[in-house]
C-alpha cells in the first residue's frame, strides 16, 4: 500500500516535471542538476534550488528598489544584477526566468526604463511560478521519500 503510494508520488513528480519542461519553465540543465544528486548529497537539488531562491529574492528586491527610485539611472548596476540572475537561473535550468532576464538586460542596455519595469513584472511573475512549481515538486519528492522510507523497513 505504502509502496504503491511511493510509486504514485514518483509518477506525479514525473508528470509535473514533464509539464514544466513542456512549458519551457525548465530545461535540461535541471536534469544535469538531478544527475549530480547521489548518495553523497541526497538533497542536492533542493539544496541548490533553495540557495537559488534565496539569492534570487535578494536580487529581485534589489532590482525593484533600483527601478523604483525616482532618480534611477544606474543601468550598469542593473545589468550586473541581471547578469547574476541570468547566471544562476540558467545554472539550475530555469529557462523562462533566464529568458526574461535576457530581455530585461536588453531593455536596460537601451536605458529603457519602461521596458525595464515591464520586464521586472514579468520576471517576478516567472520567478513566482517557478518557485511555486519547484516547491510543489520538492514536496512530492519529500512525501515520496517518506513513503519509500516507511516501506523499506518492511522489506528488511
Amino acid at each position: 500500500m505504502l509502496g504503491l503510494d511511493a510509486d504514485r508520488l514518483r509518477a506525479d513528480m514525473n508528470r509535473l516535471l514533464a509539464l514544466l519542461f513542456h512549458q519551457g519553465v525548465l530545461d535540461e540543465q535541471f536534469l544535469q542538476l538531478q544527475q549530480l544528486q547521489d548518495e553523497s548529497s541526497p538533497n542536492f537539488v533542493s539544496e541548490v534550488v533553495n540557495i537559488y531562491f534565496h539569492e534570487s529574492e535578494k536580487l529581485l528586491r534589489n532590482l525593484r528598489s533600483l527601478l523604483m527610485d525616482r532618480e534611477f539611472s544606474d543601468y550598469k548596476k542593473l545589468g550586473i544584477h541581471l547578469n547574476q540572475m541570468m547566471g544562476s537561473s540558467s545554472s539550475i535550468g530555469a529557462k523562462r526566468v533566464r529568458n526574461v532576464c535576457v530581455a530585461f538586460r536588453a531593455a536596460s542596455e537601451q536605458n529603457n526604463r519602461a521596458g525595464c519595469l515591464r520586464a521586472l513584472e514579468l520576471l517576478e511573475h516567472e520567478y513566482c511560478y517557478l518557485n511555486n512549481k519547484l516547491h510543489e515538486l520538492f514536496q512530492i519528492e519529500q512525501q515520496r521519500v517518506l513513503a519509500a522510507g516507511v516501506r523499506y523497513p518492511m522489506h528488511m
Binding site: Q84, G87, S91
Partner: peptide, 16 residues
C-alpha cells in the same frame, strides 16, 4: 564566484 548557487553547483560538478 559571488553567485552561491553557481558556486555550489560548480563545486559538486568539479568534485565529481
Amino acid at each position: 564566484d559571488d553567485d552561491t548557487t553557481c558556486l555550489r553547483i560548480l563545486e559538486t560538478m568539479l568534485r565529481r
